[in-house]
């Protein structure tokens, strides 16, 4: 044993390093709290979009029109903008965006081969020429009311 002193010294050094590592690790890191904290971080985000009830609070009239029309399944915020850009609590903070563009309508109603055949869709040029109307950027809402689009 007397000639293995150097080796035991190396082993001792190694054990000290491992002990320091374990000690420092338990002192500094608490991984068991990480996942709950991370979950809380994601949950604490404030929603940008509200929901229907948020809109109904002030706009019950329009909400009723919408609920009775063809667009009953379309959430208000889809065509307008997220609720949080418009209201904070019951207080209006900015005017709601009104996108009157035909492009918005065409996103859903432009005829595409990949769309379900029974979904109401038109080739815009044909639809307009059949009715003798010239194309304008906001042409759709001249005849169709967005909240209840059936003529």
């Amino acid at each position: 044993m007397e000639h293995q002193k150097h080796f035991f010294r190396a082993i001792f050094l190694l054990i000290v390093i491992i002990m320091v590592y374990i000690f420092a690790r338990s002192l500094i890191f608490h991984p068991e709290t990480w996942v709950p904290e991370a979950k809380e971080m994601i949950r604490s985000h404030t929603p940008v979009f509200g929901n229907l009830h948020g809109c109904n609070g002030c706009h019950s009239e329009v909400a009723r029109t919408r609920a009775e029309g063809e667009h009953k399944g379309v959430s208000c915020e889809v065509c307008h903008a997220p609720l949080s850009t418009h209201a904070e609590g019951k207080k209006k903070i900015a005017p709601m965006v009104k996108n009157r563009s035909a492009k918005l309508c065409m996103r859903c109603h432009q005829q595409l081969r990949a769309r379900p055949a029974n979904f109401s869709q038109v080739v815009v040029a044909n639809h307009l020429s059949e009715n003798g109307i010239a194309f304008e950027p906001e042409v759709c809402i001249d005849c169709h009311m967005p909240h209840s689009p059936k003529l």
Binding site: G50, N51, H53, G54, A87, E88, G89, K90
Partner: peptide
Amino acid sequence: SVYPIYGT
């Protein structure tokens, strides 16, 4: 406080 709009 931030979003009472979801409920009164």
